[in-house]
Design a binder for these strands. Structure first.
Ligand SMILES: [Mn+2]
Ligand SMILES: [Mn+2]
Ligand SMILES: [Mn+2]
Ligand SMILES: [Mn+2]
Lengths: 217, 217
DNA sequence: CTTAATTTTTAGTCTAGCCTAAAAATTAAT
DNA sequence: ATTAATTTTTAGGCTAGACTAAAAATTAAG
């Protein structure tokens, strides 16, 4: 159907276009580690295939067909991540690169059966929602930790940054999805937080607080 | 490491070079549905990478490194086939095309863990042996059915042709791996056989008999 | 409003992998 | 041993997807 390269561009545009009307050429190039000229070429191709709307010098956005396609790729990526963690004992910081390959395998039956085999999971190992075969997914109420106030309590339910280093940091601090979090103190000076992670105290910087999604109790 | 295309050529040469000193350009082209000129190009590339030995106008064979590589691809192919059948309820005639894609996924941990998850299977769904991570595999004693004589008894243990149509034929005749087979009669005229498949009688043509491996009791 | 900085596109190259058509080498047949 | 048929290689082209460098458009600054 679509080449691996096309799929990767679709995915990139999908993730960058968050509310935004158009995603710029440079943004795409930045995320994909390619040059702007390569992006221009591909945007024309995606527009030809009716996967993206491309406005020269302004940027691009996915068409409905493009969004649909993105959702299926993301569905596959996240289902494979669940598989790797649940069935093959990968840790959550090891799955992404392999899922980047597996998400391009073409077989409807494969992904349907994988979904069933995993018990139709709704979230991937990083707390991100898994679209169903129609592209629909559950939106959970969640707040970025750095928006919380002293005394707020909740559970860790998702991450903004899912990089290997951040995931390893969370492991080290015994934070995982579902962990109870309580805001003890906020430090105006450096915007850091004193929190409780399952009853034990921890200091976290603004950068950490900006990347944790909390579901309030 | 190696491109998908290179891997496919390596696999083709491996399967064609069975005892033969050299595999010809045309044989490879035939198996891969490409043209001879494309094969020549690739043979030079494989020779440069020390994966094949290439003798112009004569043909090619894999080097030890090439054989090692082929074994790993075949290992992955067959493990994925087992996964699809055992865990995702694919039938044995549905797995090959998906495995052709999955065999190119690059991750040592993935394949090690998959192997473990499947309980270190020794055979794939078509009775073919699964190489271990060193490229070693069990060679089973087996005889082509068309070599058997009246009265011989055994079990179906493998197939030469594993095409979808042949597999569906076997399903229809209730033959699967492990099925008991007995030679009742051999017809000189058309080289056909009367056999018993788990006690029930069946007529099979020479073409069928030439593609079934039997392990004698 | 004009100039400067930035972004984006165009033009031209490159490589991998494929192809066709022609040339060369090998093998088979007189 | 020639000649004919077959196989294989070479030569040249094509496409996808990347790149660099230059040109053009947009945006920001003065
Ligand atoms: Mn991921
Ligand atoms: Mn994820
Ligand atoms: Mn197969
Ligand atoms: Mn098989």
């Amino acid at each position: 159907m679509h080449s691996i390269s096309e799929e990767n561009y679709i995915k990139a545009i999908y993730h960058l276009q968050d509310g935004k009307a158009l995603v710029s050429t440079n943004e795409i190039a930045g995320r994909m580690n390619t040059k702007a000229s390569s992006v221009t070429d591909m945007l024309k191709k995606l527009a030809d295939k009716n996967l993206a709307e491309y406005v020269p010098y302004k940027g691009a956005k996915l068409t409905d067909k493009g969004v649909q396609c993105a959702n299926q790729i993301i569905r596959k990526h996240r289902l494979w991540e669940v598989f790797l963690v649940e069935k093959l004992d990968f840790s959550w910081d090891e799955v992404h690169d392999v899922a980047e390959q597996l998400e391009h395998i073409q077989s409807q039956k494969l992904i349907d059966q994988l979904d069933k085999h995993l018990g139709f999971p709704k979230k991937d190992p990083h707390g991100d929602p898994i679209p169903d075969s129609h592209g629909n997914y559950e939106k959970t109420n969640k707040t970025i930790l750095s928006k919380l106030k002293k005394g707020d309590k909740g559970t860790l339910i998702g991450l903004i940054d899912s990089s290997k280093n951040f995931l390893k940091y969370l492991d080290k601090q015994h934070m995982k999805l579902g962990t109870n979090i309580e805001i003890i103190e906020f430090e105006e000076f450096d915007l850091s937080y004193s929190i409780k992670v399952n009853e034990s105290p921890l200091q976290i910087s603004k950068q950490i607080a900006d990347n944790l999604y909390i579901k309030l109790k």
